[in-house]
Computed example of a mutant assay.
Amino acid sequence: MVTLTFVSSDGKESRTVKAPIGISLMKLAHFEGIDVEGACGGNLACSTCHMIFSEADFARLPQMGTDEDDLLDLAPNVTATSRLGCQITVSPELDGLTIHLPPAP
């Protein structure tokens, strides 16, 4: 288990959770009742599980694939450190990661 923190879209609330190794950030958010849509169920067919990271945390994430990069073009409020939560699997290297939810469109 690793510890991760989700920060609300307005930055006013945060929630720290224990995450099992191997779960996607999108599924973890759903399991924990955190407001992340994930309309396609993690099939890399939408961009509704968009998440934003600090530059330091972004550098710790696994490399982004071309399909994910293309889908991020469809997400509102994308930043240089945006990723799709369905494409990030919790690993020991991500312990202490902070995940910022994007502002509503």
Rank of each mutant, 00 (worst) to 15 (best):
36 V>D: 00
33 G>Q: 13
37 E>N: 03
68 E>Y: 07
41 G>M: 11
72 L>P: 04
44 L>E: 08
76 P>G: 02
46 C>P: 13
6 F>A: 01
73 D>Y: 04
46 C>F: 09
3 T>W: 08
59 A>Q: 14
58 F>C: 02
28 L>N: 02
44 L>M: 13
87 Q>K: 08
97 L>M: 05
6 F>S: 03
28 L>C: 12
69 D>I: 02
70 D>R: 11
47 S>N: 07
76 P>L: 06
95 D>S: 08
91 S>W: 00
44 L>G: 04
9 S>K: 10
72 L>Q: 10
70 D>S: 10
80 A>F: 10
65 G>M: 11
103 P>Y: 01
74 L>K: 08
104 A>V: 10
28 L>K: 01
3 T>M: 11
70 D>V: 07
81 T>S: 07
58 F>I: 04
79 T>Y: 06
48 T>M: 09
3 T>A: 07
42 G>L: 05
11 G>Y: 15
71 L>K: 04
24 S>N: 15
31 F>E: 15
45 A>Y: 00
27 K>P: 00
20 P>G: 11
69 D>R: 07
26 M>R: 00
41 G>K: 11
43 N>I: 01
11 G>H: 12
35 D>Q: 11
104 A>I: 07
89 T>N: 05
33 G>E: 10
89 T>P: 01
28 L>G: 12
14 S>R: 14
46 C>Q: 07
105 P>G: 09
29 A>I: 05
37 E>R: 09
11 G>Q: 15
7 V>H: 03
59 A>T: 10
101 L>A: 08
24 S>A: 08
24 S>P: 05
36 V>A: 12
64 M>L: 13
32 E>C: 10
38 G>V: 11
53 F>E: 04
74 L>I: 08
67 D>G: 01
5 T>W: 05
97 L>K: 00
62 P>V: 02
70 D>Y: 12
100 H>L: 10
66 T>K: 15
101 L>I: 08
61 L>V: 06
1 M>Q: 12
87 Q>H: 10
76 P>Y: 08
103 P>D: 01
46 C>W: 06
68 E>V: 09
29 A>R: 08
37 E>K: 09
10 D>W: 08
98 T>F: 03
74 L>G: 06
104 A>H: 10
86 C>N: 01
37 E>L: 14
4 L>P: 00
31 F>C: 06
54 S>P: 06
2 V>T: 13
70 D>N: 13
74 L>S: 12
100 H>K: 07
79 T>G: 12
101 L>G: 07
58 F>Q: 00
87 Q>I: 04
62 P>M: 03
103 P>H: 02
90 V>I: 12
39 A>E: 13
10 D>S: 13
27 K>L: 14
50 H>F: 12
31 F>I: 11
89 T>K: 14
31 F>Y: 12
11 G>W: 13
46 C>R: 07
91 S>D: 01
60 R>A: 04
23 I>N: 11
21 I>D: 13
5 T>P: 03
66 T>N: 14
62 P>Y: 04
39 A>R: 03
46 C>E: 10
93 E>W: 02
33 G>M: 14
98 T>R: 01
30 H>S: 11
